[in-house]
Write a protein that binds this DNA or RNA. Structure first.
Lengths: 120, 120
DNA sequence: TCCATATTTCGACGATACAAGAAACCACCG
DNA sequence: CGGTGGTTTCTTGTATCGTCGAAATATGGA
Protein backbone atom coordinates (compact mmCIF):
# COMPACT_ATOMS: atom_id res chain seq x y z
CA UNK A 1 0.00 0.00 0.00
CA UNK A 2 1.17 3.51 -0.67
CA UNK A 3 1.16 6.58 1.48
CA UNK A 4 -1.77 8.52 0.02
CA UNK A 5 -4.48 5.87 0.29
CA UNK A 6 -3.19 4.92 3.74
CA UNK A 7 -3.60 8.50 4.91
CA UNK A 8 -7.06 8.60 3.38
CA UNK A 9 -8.03 5.41 5.22
CA UNK A 10 -6.67 6.65 8.53
CA UNK A 11 -8.39 10.01 8.08
CA UNK A 12 -11.65 8.20 7.41
CA UNK A 13 -11.23 6.28 10.66
CA UNK A 14 -10.11 9.31 12.66
CA UNK A 15 -13.62 10.34 13.58
CA UNK A 16 -15.71 8.99 16.41
CA UNK A 17 -18.85 8.37 14.39
CA UNK A 18 -17.06 6.84 11.42
CA UNK A 19 -14.84 4.67 13.58
CA UNK A 20 -17.87 3.36 15.46
CA UNK A 21 -19.61 2.59 12.17
CA UNK A 22 -16.56 0.84 10.77
CA UNK A 23 -16.02 -1.27 13.87
CA UNK A 24 -19.67 -2.22 13.87
CA UNK A 25 -19.34 -3.45 10.28
CA UNK A 26 -16.10 -5.26 11.12
CA UNK A 27 -17.85 -7.02 13.96
CA UNK A 28 -20.91 -7.74 11.85
CA UNK A 29 -18.91 -9.93 9.48
CA UNK A 30 -19.24 -10.52 5.74
CA UNK A 31 -23.04 -10.36 5.81
CA UNK A 32 -22.87 -6.68 6.66
CA UNK A 33 -25.59 -4.39 7.95
CA UNK A 34 -28.16 -2.08 6.37
CA UNK A 35 -27.40 1.63 6.62
CA UNK A 36 -30.55 2.24 8.64
CA UNK A 37 -29.63 -0.53 11.04
CA UNK A 38 -26.23 1.05 11.63
CA UNK A 39 -27.83 4.45 12.18
CA UNK A 40 -30.26 2.92 14.68
CA UNK A 41 -27.57 1.09 16.64
CA UNK A 42 -25.28 4.11 16.80
CA UNK A 43 -28.15 6.54 17.33
CA UNK A 44 -27.18 9.04 14.65
CA UNK A 45 -29.29 10.83 12.05
CA UNK A 46 -29.56 8.95 8.76
CA UNK A 47 -28.04 11.76 6.70
CA UNK A 48 -25.14 12.14 9.07
CA UNK A 49 -24.49 8.41 8.94
CA UNK A 50 -24.76 8.47 5.17
CA UNK A 51 -22.00 11.06 5.06
CA UNK A 52 -19.88 8.90 7.35
CA UNK A 53 -20.40 5.77 5.27
CA UNK A 54 -19.62 7.75 2.14
CA UNK A 55 -16.25 8.77 3.53
CA UNK A 56 -15.43 5.21 4.60
CA UNK A 57 -16.52 3.93 1.22
CA UNK A 58 -14.41 6.43 -0.71
CA UNK A 59 -11.46 5.39 1.42
CA UNK A 60 -12.07 1.81 0.31
CA UNK A 61 -12.67 0.53 3.82
CA UNK A 62 -16.23 -0.59 3.22
CA UNK A 63 -18.36 -1.73 0.29
CA UNK A 64 -22.07 -1.48 -0.37
CA UNK A 65 -24.75 -3.42 -2.24
CA UNK A 66 -28.43 -2.79 -2.64
CA UNK A 67 -30.97 -5.22 -1.21
CA UNK A 68 -34.49 -4.06 -1.88
CA UNK A 69 -35.02 -0.69 -0.31
CA UNK A 70 -32.00 -1.08 1.94
CA UNK A 71 -28.34 -0.61 1.19
CA UNK A 72 -26.12 -3.17 2.89
CA UNK A 73 -22.65 -2.10 3.93
CA UNK A 74 -19.82 -4.52 4.62
CA UNK A 75 -16.28 -4.04 5.92
CA UNK A 76 -13.55 -4.60 3.34
CA UNK A 77 -11.30 -6.95 5.28
CA UNK A 78 -8.71 -6.94 2.56
CA UNK A 79 -8.32 -3.17 2.70
CA UNK A 80 -8.08 -3.43 6.46
CA UNK A 81 -5.34 -6.02 6.16
CA UNK A 82 -3.37 -3.81 3.76
CA UNK A 83 -3.65 -0.84 6.08
CA UNK A 84 -2.41 -2.77 9.10
CA UNK A 85 0.42 -4.26 7.07
CA UNK A 86 1.40 -0.78 5.91
CA UNK A 87 1.60 0.48 9.48
CA UNK A 88 3.81 -2.42 10.52
CA UNK A 89 5.92 -2.56 7.38
CA UNK A 90 9.58 -3.35 8.06
CA UNK A 91 9.02 -2.71 11.72
CA UNK A 92 11.35 -3.07 14.64
CA UNK A 93 14.64 -2.92 12.70
CA UNK A 94 14.84 -6.70 12.52
CA UNK A 95 13.96 -7.40 16.13
CA UNK A 96 11.03 -9.84 15.92
CA UNK A 97 10.77 -10.05 19.70
CA UNK A 98 9.57 -6.44 19.70
CA UNK A 99 6.68 -6.86 17.33
CA UNK A 100 5.73 -10.43 18.11
CA UNK A 101 3.14 -9.05 20.55
CA UNK A 102 1.66 -7.06 17.70
CA UNK A 103 1.05 -10.21 15.72
CA UNK A 104 -0.24 -11.93 18.83
CA UNK A 105 -2.75 -9.15 19.41
CA UNK A 106 -3.92 -9.43 15.84
CA UNK A 107 -4.53 -13.15 16.00
CA UNK A 108 -6.06 -12.94 19.44
CA UNK A 109 -8.68 -10.41 18.42
CA UNK A 110 -10.79 -12.78 16.40
CA UNK A 111 -9.70 -16.35 17.01
CA UNK A 112 -11.17 -16.40 20.49
CA UNK A 113 -14.69 -16.16 19.11
CA UNK A 114 -16.10 -13.65 21.56
CA UNK A 115 -19.81 -12.90 21.48
CA UNK A 116 -21.16 -10.15 19.29
CA UNK A 117 -22.48 -7.09 21.08
CA UNK A 118 -25.71 -6.09 19.30
CA UNK A 119 -26.35 -2.97 21.37
CA UNK A 120 -22.80 -1.64 20.92
CA UNK B 1 -8.65 0.68 24.50
CA UNK B 2 -11.52 3.12 24.37
CA UNK B 3 -12.97 5.15 21.58
CA UNK B 4 -11.57 8.61 22.35
CA UNK B 5 -7.86 7.74 22.52
CA UNK B 6 -8.25 5.49 19.49
CA UNK B 7 -9.67 8.39 17.48
CA UNK B 8 -6.86 10.61 18.72
CA UNK B 9 -4.27 8.05 17.61
CA UNK B 10 -5.85 7.61 14.20
CA UNK B 11 -6.14 11.37 13.74
CA UNK B 12 -2.47 11.71 14.60
CA UNK B 13 -1.63 9.16 11.91
CA UNK B 14 -4.02 10.61 9.34
CA UNK B 15 -1.50 13.06 7.97
CA UNK B 16 1.18 12.38 5.41
CA UNK B 17 4.05 13.96 7.32
CA UNK B 18 3.11 12.48 10.66
CA UNK B 19 2.49 9.03 9.22
CA UNK B 20 5.87 9.09 7.52
CA UNK B 21 7.53 10.11 10.77
CA UNK B 22 5.75 7.43 12.74
CA UNK B 23 6.60 4.69 10.27
CA UNK B 24 10.20 5.82 10.26
CA UNK B 25 10.30 5.46 14.04
CA UNK B 26 8.53 2.11 13.87
CA UNK B 27 11.13 0.90 11.41
CA UNK B 28 13.97 2.38 13.43
CA UNK B 29 13.24 0.09 16.35
CA UNK B 30 13.58 0.65 20.10
CA UNK B 31 16.73 2.74 19.76
CA UNK B 32 14.74 5.49 18.10
CA UNK B 33 15.95 8.49 16.12
CA UNK B 34 16.83 12.09 16.93
CA UNK B 35 14.27 14.70 15.86
CA UNK B 36 16.76 16.34 13.56
CA UNK B 37 17.60 13.03 11.95
CA UNK B 38 13.91 12.44 11.22
CA UNK B 39 13.56 15.94 9.79
CA UNK B 40 16.59 15.36 7.56
CA UNK B 41 15.38 12.00 6.26
CA UNK B 42 11.88 13.26 5.57
CA UNK B 43 13.09 16.63 4.29
CA UNK B 44 10.77 18.80 6.35
CA UNK B 45 11.41 21.98 8.32
CA UNK B 46 12.42 21.35 11.94
CA UNK B 47 9.52 23.33 13.38
CA UNK B 48 7.00 21.55 11.17
CA UNK B 49 8.41 18.19 12.22
CA UNK B 50 8.39 19.24 15.86
CA UNK B 51 4.69 19.95 15.58
CA UNK B 52 4.15 16.55 13.98
CA UNK B 53 6.10 14.74 16.69
CA UNK B 54 4.21 16.69 19.32
CA UNK B 55 0.89 15.46 17.95
CA UNK B 56 2.10 11.87 17.79
CA UNK B 57 3.47 12.16 21.30
CA UNK B 58 0.25 13.56 22.73
CA UNK B 59 -1.59 10.68 21.09
CA UNK B 60 0.70 8.33 22.97
CA UNK B 61 2.12 6.76 19.82
CA UNK B 62 5.71 7.82 20.41
CA UNK B 63 7.90 8.67 23.40
CA UNK B 64 10.89 10.96 23.72
CA UNK B 65 14.02 11.19 25.81
CA UNK B 66 16.79 13.71 25.84
CA UNK B 67 20.31 12.74 24.85
CA UNK B 68 22.66 15.69 25.04
CA UNK B 69 21.44 18.35 22.67
CA UNK B 70 19.27 15.94 20.75
CA UNK B 71 15.85 14.58 21.60
CA UNK B 72 15.43 10.94 20.71
CA UNK B 73 11.99 9.76 19.67
CA UNK B 74 10.88 6.14 19.75
CA UNK B 75 7.71 4.40 18.62
CA UNK B 76 5.51 3.12 21.42
CA UNK B 77 4.92 -0.43 20.23
CA UNK B 78 2.54 -1.13 23.06
CA UNK B 79 0.26 1.73 22.06
CA UNK B 80 0.43 0.53 18.49
CA UNK B 81 -0.60 -2.95 19.56
CA UNK B 82 -3.57 -1.60 21.50
CA UNK B 83 -4.71 0.45 18.55
CA UNK B 84 -4.58 -2.50 16.15
CA UNK B 85 -6.36 -4.70 18.67
CA UNK B 86 -9.06 -2.07 19.03
CA UNK B 87 -9.65 -1.97 15.29
CA UNK B 88 -9.96 -5.74 15.10
CA UNK B 89 -11.91 -6.21 18.31
CA UNK B 90 -14.58 -8.91 18.10
CA UNK B 91 -14.17 -8.97 14.36
CA UNK B 92 -15.78 -11.18 11.77
CA UNK B 93 -18.79 -12.28 13.83
CA UNK B 94 -17.02 -15.44 14.93
CA UNK B 95 -15.65 -16.42 11.52
CA UNK B 96 -11.91 -16.84 12.11
CA UNK B 97 -11.32 -17.77 8.47
CA UNK B 98 -12.15 -14.18 7.55
CA UNK B 99 -9.64 -12.48 9.77
CA UNK B 100 -6.92 -15.11 9.77
CA UNK B 101 -5.28 -13.21 6.89
CA UNK B 102 -5.25 -10.12 9.10
CA UNK B 103 -3.23 -11.91 11.72
CA UNK B 104 -1.02 -13.40 9.03
CA UNK B 105 -0.28 -9.95 7.64
CA UNK B 106 0.63 -8.75 11.10
CA UNK B 107 3.09 -11.52 11.78
CA UNK B 108 4.52 -11.38 8.26
CA UNK B 109 5.37 -7.70 8.50
CA UNK B 110 8.24 -8.10 10.90
CA UNK B 111 9.19 -11.74 11.28
CA UNK B 112 10.73 -11.90 7.82
CA UNK B 113 13.51 -9.53 8.81
CA UNK B 114 13.54 -7.34 5.75
CA UNK B 115 16.28 -4.76 5.37
CA UNK B 116 15.81 -1.26 6.75
CA UNK B 117 15.31 1.52 4.24
CA UNK B 118 17.35 4.49 5.50
CA UNK B 119 16.35 6.93 2.76
CA UNK B 120 12.58 6.36 2.96
C1' DT C 1 -50.32 5.84 -10.19
C1' DC C 2 -49.88 7.14 -5.33
C1' DC C 3 -47.89 6.38 -0.93
C1' DA C 4 -44.56 4.87 2.60
C1' DT C 5 -39.92 3.47 3.60
C1' DA C 6 -34.86 3.79 3.00
C1' DT C 7 -31.09 6.45 1.76
C1' DT C 8 -28.57 10.15 -0.37
C1' DT C 9 -27.61 15.01 -1.85
C1' DC C 10 -27.61 20.03 -1.16
C1' DG C 11 -26.65 24.37 1.28
C1' DA C 12 -24.79 26.91 4.91
C1' DC C 13 -22.90 27.79 9.24
C1' DG C 14 -19.40 27.11 12.83
C1' DA C 15 -15.29 24.90 14.23
C1' DT C 16 -10.83 22.93 13.60
C1' DA C 17 -6.36 21.85 11.42
C1' DC C 18 -2.15 23.00 8.67
C1' DA C 19 2.28 25.32 7.27
C1' DA C 20 5.78 28.55 7.82
C1' DG C 21 8.45 32.57 9.61
C1' DA C 22 10.24 34.46 13.69
C1' DA C 23 11.70 34.14 18.16
C1' DA C 24 12.68 31.72 22.40
C1' DC C 25 14.73 27.87 24.82
C1' DC C 26 18.14 24.26 26.18
C1' DA C 27 22.54 21.96 26.36
C1' DC C 28 27.32 21.56 25.30
C1' DC C 29 31.94 23.80 24.43
C1' DG C 30 35.64 27.12 24.32
C1' DC D 1 30.20 34.05 29.91
C1' DG D 2 29.34 34.13 24.91
C1' DG D 3 28.54 31.26 20.86
C1' DT D 4 26.56 27.47 18.26
C1' DG D 5 23.73 23.59 17.03
C1' DG D 6 19.31 21.37 18.03
C1' DT D 7 14.50 21.80 19.17
C1' DT D 8 10.28 23.87 20.56
C1' DT D 9 6.79 27.65 21.02
C1' DC D 10 4.17 31.54 19.18
C1' DT D 11 1.48 33.81 15.70
C1' DT D 12 -1.12 34.28 11.63
C1' DG D 13 -3.44 33.44 7.30
C1' DT D 14 -5.71 29.93 4.79
C1' DA D 15 -8.20 25.89 3.89
C1' DT D 16 -10.74 21.97 5.07
C1' DC D 17 -14.09 19.31 7.83
C1' DG D 18 -18.51 18.16 10.38
C1' DT D 19 -23.40 18.71 11.35
C1' DC D 20 -28.00 19.45 10.51
C1' DG D 21 -32.46 20.79 8.17
C1' DA D 22 -34.62 20.41 3.96
C1' DA D 23 -35.22 18.49 -0.34
C1' DA D 24 -34.37 14.89 -3.78
C1' DT D 25 -33.90 10.02 -5.34
C1' DA D 26 -34.83 5.04 -5.37
C1' DT D 27 -37.54 0.88 -4.26
C1' DG D 28 -41.61 -1.91 -3.21
C1' DG D 29 -46.51 -2.40 -2.44
C1' DA D 30 -51.73 -1.19 -2.69
Amino acid sequence: MEMKPAVASLAALAHEGRLAAFRLLVQAGPMGLAAGEVARRLDVLPNTLSASLSVLSHAGLIASRRAGRSVIYTADYDAMRELLAFLMEDCCAGKPEICAPLAAAASGACSTGREMNPAQ
